[in-house]
Amino acid sequence: MHIEFNDKTPIYLQIMDIIKMDIVTGKLKAKDKLPSVREMAINLKVNPNTLQRSYQELERLGIVYTQRGTGTFVGEEKNMVNDLKKEMAKEVIDSFILRMKSLGFTDNEIIKSVSEETMEVKKNG
């Protein structure tokens, strides 16, 4: 597994994003076991402590849970996938709106251009 990290933002956050993405896309399902900290650290070539931190944060957020002696698993909370999806969508939209505004678009223009583009995408498949 090779992942390009952006060294400008904390690596533990980027690893969390990768795992969240895998949950949202269904690559990881409820009760699936995550690789061990060491295994994943070696694969990603990062410090095991960094990975530990990613897992701890995910656990704090209720996305994964740790079972003593057996490992870390994806949470079973019903709404979790949807909540994650919403949260990640919000991040994408927020940064999109910010960039559109810095290009000088007003709110209405942004909405208009989005609906035009989605129509366009629909038309062209």
């Binding site: 060294d7 400008k8 933002t9 904390p10 690596i11 533990y12 960094t50 931190r53």
Partner: peptide, 10 residues
Amino acid sequence: EELRRDKKKS
């Protein structure tokens, strides 16, 4: 990690 976060730099 904190330096990356605080300074937004690698």
